[in-house]
Computed example of a mutant assay.
Amino acid sequence: MARLDEHDNPSRGLVVRNLRLAFGDTLVQDQVSFHVAPAQIFVIMGVSGCGKSTLLRHIIDLQRAEVGDISFDGQRLISDDRAERAALQERIGVLFQSTALWSSMTVGENVALPMQLHTRMRAAEIQDQVAFKLALVGLAGQESRMPSELSGGMQKRAGLARAIALDPDYLFLDEPSAGLDPITSQRLDALIMRLRDALGLSVIAVSHELPSIFTIADDSIYLDNQSKTPIAHGTPRDMLDSTVDARVRAFLKREPIEDAAQGADA
Rank of each mutant, 00 (worst) to 15 (best):
N110D: 10
A190D: 13
L4N: 08
L150G: 03
A86H: 08
L4D: 08
I44K: 03
L180F: 06
Y170E: 03
I231V: 15
D259S: 13
V32L: 08
L62M: 14
P176D: 04
Q29W: 07
D128H: 14
A198M: 09
A2K: 04
R187D: 00
T235P: 01
I192V: 15
H58R: 05
I231Q: 04
E175M: 12
T243C: 10
S71M: 12
A87C: 03
D181H: 05
G234L: 13
T243V: 13
L113I: 00
H35K: 10
R162F: 09
R57T: 00
Q186F: 02
P236F: 05
I221L: 07
L134M: 10
L117Y: 10
F214N: 01
A135Y: 10
D218I: 09
G263A: 14
E84W: 01
D189I: 01
G179F: 06
P168E: 12
A246S: 15
M239N: 00
G46P: 01
S79C: 10
P256K: 08
S148K: 10
D265N: 12
S212W: 00
I213H: 07
G46H: 10
A112M: 09
A124I: 08
M121K: 13
I192P: 01
M105T: 05
G153R: 00
L14S: 06
G138N: 09
M45G: 06
Y170G: 02
T106Q: 07
A131Q: 14
R20N: 06
F34K: 03
M121R: 14
P114D: 07
T243R: 06
A86S: 12
F172V: 03
S103G: 11
V36S: 09
S212T: 02
A123F: 01
A266F: 12
A87I: 03
L4C: 05
K156G: 04
F132R: 14
I221P: 00
Q186A: 13
R64Y: 06
G200L: 12
A83C: 04
V244C: 07
G153L: 04
L173K: 00
V107Q: 08
A37Y: 00
R82H: 06
A266R: 15
V248A: 05
A205Y: 01
E125M: 10
S103C: 01
A86Y: 00
D69H: 15
A232K: 06
D224M: 12
Q155R: 15
I78R: 14
M154A: 02
A264D: 12
M154S: 06
G68P: 03
L195N: 03
D25G: 15
K156M: 05
D265H: 13
P176V: 08
Q186C: 04
I231L: 07
A261R: 15
T215N: 01
V203C: 13
F214G: 05
S79N: 08
L55S: 00
S103W: 14
I216A: 04
E149T: 09
A217Y: 11
I221N: 04
D25F: 07
T184W: 08
M45F: 15
F251C: 05
V32T: 05
G179V: 02
I78C: 02
R20T: 13
S33E: 08
L223F: 08
E90V: 01
G13E: 13
A161Q: 06
K228Q: 14
L160D: 00
A198N: 11
F96R: 01
F42C: 00
F251Q: 06
